[in-house]
């Protein structure tokens, strides 16, 4: 008898690609205004079109790109690099979270899947692996999500770049709320247990209290505090459950 690991039937490669794009679509909508604003803002800060596009094409990290264009007129190179490093350290945690599902893939797969890992694709993949596992063509689903986000980000950066030259006031539209709305929509449905709620509340609280620290290090410390609290409560709960069964 074969082991029944998942109740869901395996999908073809084409279906995986289609589902990956479909499940990433809302995130692409959420990133749209962000991309336009980046293109506009970077142009206004004096970056050439080539420099703006090479950031979106090769750095491919919204938060780091915004920090960079925010600091580019006032800060030294190493300050922006340090900020990039600290604000993107969270991607290390994302990669650690997903690594068990890509371990079986060759390096030429692992490299693009790591290089294009964003907040949005991580959220999509975390849910997908939890629901359907990593068997079959799951990595095509992952790649589709990455490429969807990447094309989307670059397309809207380009739009921002072009539009920014004719309407320099575009950022006053308040589209910067899109990122907040997207992240809220990712987080809330995932809060299914008390330790998860505690982790989120602690992270938000600590990050807010430490907001004044340089390079947004409050973000990282808040996240670590949240993960710590979540883990402690989770371990305590498991211990209680174990004692009930004894």
């Amino acid at each position: 008898m074969t082991a029944i690991s998942t109740a869901l039937p395996a999908m073809s490669r084409r279906d995986e690609i289609w589902h990956g794009l479909r499940d990433t679509f809302p995130m692409m909508v959420g990133a749209l205004p962000f991309g336009v604003i980046f293109g506009t803002l970077a142009t206004a800060q004096g970056l050439s079109p080539l420099q703006v596009m090479s950031m979106s094409l090769f750095v491919f990290s919204g938060s780091a790109q915004f920090i960079a264009v925010g600091l580019v007129t006032s800060s030294a190179l190493w300050v922006i690099w340090a900020a990039t490093f600290i604000i993107n350290l969270r991607h290390l945690l994302y990669a650690a979270n997903l690594v068990n599902h890509v371990r079986h893939l060759p390096q030429y797969w692992r490299f693009p899947l790591a290089a294009m890992l964003t907040d949005e694709t991580f959220a999509v993949m975390e849910l997908r692996y939890r629901q359907r596992g990593s068997e079959g063509y799951a990595h095509w689903y992952y790649l589709a999500s990455c490429i969807g986000m990447w094309l989307n980000w670059n397309f809207w950066t380009l739009v921002g770049l072009v539009v920014g030259q004719s309407f320099p006031d575009l950022k006053s539209l308040g589209l910067e709320f899109a990122m907040v709305a997207t992240f809220i929509g990712i987080v809330i449905p995932g809060l299914k247990t008390k330790p998860l709620w505690a982790a989120a509340i602690t992270a938000g609280l600590v990050a807010t209290l430490l907001h004044h620290l340089p390079y947004q290090s409050g973000l990282m410390l808040g996240a670590l505090a949240g993960v710590g609290i979540g883990l402690v409560l989770d371990l305590r709960r498991k211990k209680l459950e174990a004692s009930v069964y004894e």
Partner: peptide
């Protein structure tokens, strides 16, 4: 611990 990463990181971005 990694299971708590998405909720913790994203909330630490949103709230501030």
């Amino acid at each position: 611990a990694l299971a708590f990463v998405p909720a913790a990181v994203l909330t630490a971005i949103i709230v501030p």
